[in-house]
Write a protein that binds this DNA or RNA. Structure first.
Length: 360
DNA sequence: AAAACGGGGGA
DNA sequence: TCCCCAGTTTT
């Protein structure tokens, strides 16, 4: 086997991590019962999301959908409504699809190997390994951001995080550790826990680390310089015109197509400005829907939301209407569909009754 | 290999 | 402000 660059025997490293997890691992809701369904659900929710945030969503989901069949039978809109605010909504859409595959094509049973799990929508290399390990006790290389950080420091690996070659090295190391462990799942979860609690990006606590005496970055006093990252891409400004058409306790909502940004979520009539005047675009949005615009449209507010690569600025127009209108949704229906945090803000800004119907 | 895809909490 | 989080999918 090629040299993995460990600063100490894998057996010693593995035992130290396992002991750390047994003694200091957190009592997270999804650790109480390691059923495949709960492990899968928690892992999907935790993707690119802080554990503290995922906890609330996980608790609500298992209460509302106790079994994978319950999730599979629910309308997608219900699932996305529950997912509202969590972000990366493709996860919610894939979650629903995967639940249907498991419930309807596999008799409710999850695949019990990483390769099998990998076939489910939304389950990539990390999640497949995590479920195979935590739920089925398999010896897998479970490599997430925490693991990459811990191992890059431990082995003084200066490969950029987003390069496949770096990922391959980390995977080989994670597998070697899992194979050297007493209990592979404990090791795997332990490395992640170490990254989450001790070997953190900024405020790392080497004094509390079970690996500190073996860590190469620590030896060289360069922990803060690892892992190595590439330069981030700049953000671009996107201005959007949003028209909040409302009638008392009802508001006009439309469903976005089920892909791309905020896919499958609901929104008020809206479109990017593309350099046009907001008032003019607002009028066009209304006319395209057969709505009579008042003599003069008044901008109600500006709502700004920052995404990873985009700065969204909504020019919000509040437009009261009367008479019957089709896509006008009663307030109590609004909480039953998927809404992005950005759209919640837009609704709050342009719909007088929003406070009565939008939680938070 | 690079880009797309949310949101928020902490430094 | 910037960073970065229990990553996956698409281009």
């Amino acid at each position: 086997m090629a040299d993995l660059g460990f600063p100490a025997p894998t057996r010693r490293l593995a035992r130290a991590v396992e002991a750390f997890f047994v003694e200091q691992g957190r009592d997270l809701p999804w650790r109480a019962d390691r059923s495949p369904y709960r492990v899968w659900l928690s892992e999907i929710m935790c993707q690119q999301t802080r554990v503290q945030v995922a906890i609330d969503y996980f608790t609500r989901f298992v209460e509302r959908f106790p079994r994978v069949e319950d999730l599979a039978r629910a309308p997608l809109d219900d699932v996305l409504a529950m997912w509202s605010g969590l972000g990366y909504y493709a996860r919610g859409r894939n979650l629903h699809r995967a639940a249907q595959v498991v419930a309807f094509e596999r008799d409710g049973r999850f695949p019990d190997t990483a390769a099998g799990l990998r076939e489910l929508p939304g389950v990539g290399p990390y999640t497949a390994a995590a479920i195979a390990s935590f739920a089925f006790g398999r010896t897998e290389a479970v490599v997430d951001g925490n693991v990459m950080r811990v191992l890059s420091r431990l082995c003084l690996d200066d490969g950029p995080l987003d390069e496949p070659a770096t990922k391959r090295r980390m995977t080989a190391r994670a597998l070697a550790l899992a194979e050297a462990a007493d209990h592979a799942p404990t090791l795997a979860e332990g490395v992640m826990e170490l990254g989450a609690l001790v070997c953190t990006p900024k405020a790392f606590r080497c004094d509390a680390c079970p690996l500190s005496t073996m860590c190469e970055a620590r030896d060289a006093d360069v922990v803060a310089l690892y892992p190595v990252k590439k330069k981030p891409r700049p953000r671009t400004l996107v201005e959007v015109c949003a028209v909040v058409v409302h009638q008392d306790g009802a508001v006009w909502l439309e469903r976005r197509e089920a892909k791309g940004l905020f896919g499958g979520l609901y929104e008020v009539p809206a479109t990017p400005l593309d350099g046009a005047a907001p008032a003019k675009v607002a009028r066009q949005l209304l006319e395209a829907r057969g709505l009579s615009a008042p003599g003069r449209l008044r901008k109600t507010a500006t709502v700004a939301r920052t995404l990873t690569h985009r700065e969204l600025v909504f020019h919000v127009y509040s437009v009261p209407v009367d008479g019957a209108h089709d896509p006008l949704r009663a307030g109590d229906e609004v909480s039953g569909v998927g809404l992005s945090t950005a759209m919640r803000e837009v609704l709050r800004a342009g719909w007088p009754a929003a406070e009565r119907f939008l939680p938070g």
